[in-house]
Design a protein around this nucleic acid. Sequence first.
DNA 1: TCTGGGGTCCTAGGACCC
DNA 2: TCTGGGGTCCTAGGACCC
Length: 424
Amino acid sequence: MRSPVYVLVDCNNFYASCERVFNPELNGKPVVVLSNNDGCAVACSKEAKALGIKVGTPIFECKGMMEGHDVRIRSSNYTLYGDMSERVMQILMGFTPEIEIYSIDEAFLRLDGLAHKDFLSYGKTIRAKVQRWTGIPVSIGIAPTKTLAKLANRYAKKHPETEGVFDLREEDSRKEYLQKVDVSDIWGIGFQYSKLLKKYSINTAWELSQAPMTWLRKNLTVKGLRTAWELKGFPCISLEETREAKQGICSSRSFGRPVKTLRDLQEALSSYASIGAEKLRSEHSVASIIGVFLGTNPFKSEPQYSNYYSANLAFPTAESSLLIHVALRSLQKIFRTGFSYKKVGIFLFGIVPERDSSPNLFGQFYQGSKSQTLMETFDQINQRMGRDTLRFASSGISNEWQMRREYLTDKFTTNWQELLEIVS
DNA sequence: TCTGGGGTCCTAGGACCC
DNA sequence: TCTGGGGTCCTAGGACCC
């Protein structure tokens, strides 16, 4: 059996790097990209991190740190990041057929199937190509397991002398390295587990790898057990090259300002239902249950209310208008006047592939119906002409409830009207 | 109603990830 | 004033069955 070589390719400060590609003036400056509604920092350039700004903190808490440092703030532009991600992944696919796209900015590769055996120099080639073709800097970790590849990647990011590529395959040198890694920095060990581990004096990755297996099984479930074996160098988590269809789809946003009227909630909900339906169709799936939820802002000291209602559909479908209709009817049932709402959204459940759906008792069905043809045309037009070219009237026009995006850059790569202009 | 071991299915909730 | 939006997996416990 060939011994596995896992490689994690991770884009450095991905969203901030994307912003820089289209605005080189940001190079060398602290850049912070905000979450939806311009709430928290979700990506920071290394200059921003150096100021003490941490990913996940509300931006209003960072005011003091930013003062006088010429910090450049951007609202998140997922259309741009999604497109840049696709370009990076395309390049990686050119290096090996064994690839798992793990998130928008990360991919696991397996290289042991290749004829090439000098993995360190291969890693440097990958890194240079992604940089040259997309402008995005990446870091690369190489190891016998995914968990170790994650750690190797982290080391490459933190140590410039590695030139962005670090290899943890050598077993003899691993112990010394693992002794320096805090348990909370291990993939799969979050806040609660690291608190528990530290209570039992398990402080480093090395100590976790040596911990009694029965204790781990009992307290951290099989997942903790797998992590420990992976740290020892035995692969327990394999590459997931094909992604299963999602089990549930959720579409929801917080509002930019408090929403009080049923009408605004209806508009917002209808547009989220429409987004959910699009996600469903992009996976060639249909859903049979739709849930609707709404809630006030729990951070505020004002009357609180939240509720949830779910409805079974007469037959599994991916038709936007039908899903919108049922969602709005459900909203009627849980809406109460007199509250300031912060959030509304939908869940889709009972998801099965389109081709597995069959007509119900009354002969109603989605696959092969006129509504399916309509939806396909709808999606094609929006794909070609830009999202929201066609939309549903129930989503409204003015959209006062829209999320805040004060610092948004253009969709440089996906919209003809917003291409980058070079002025000489 | 009680007795008992063994099984399945479902749901809620908790942990984690980016 | 301002606090993201998606997901996954696992377990415990209850309901129910024989």
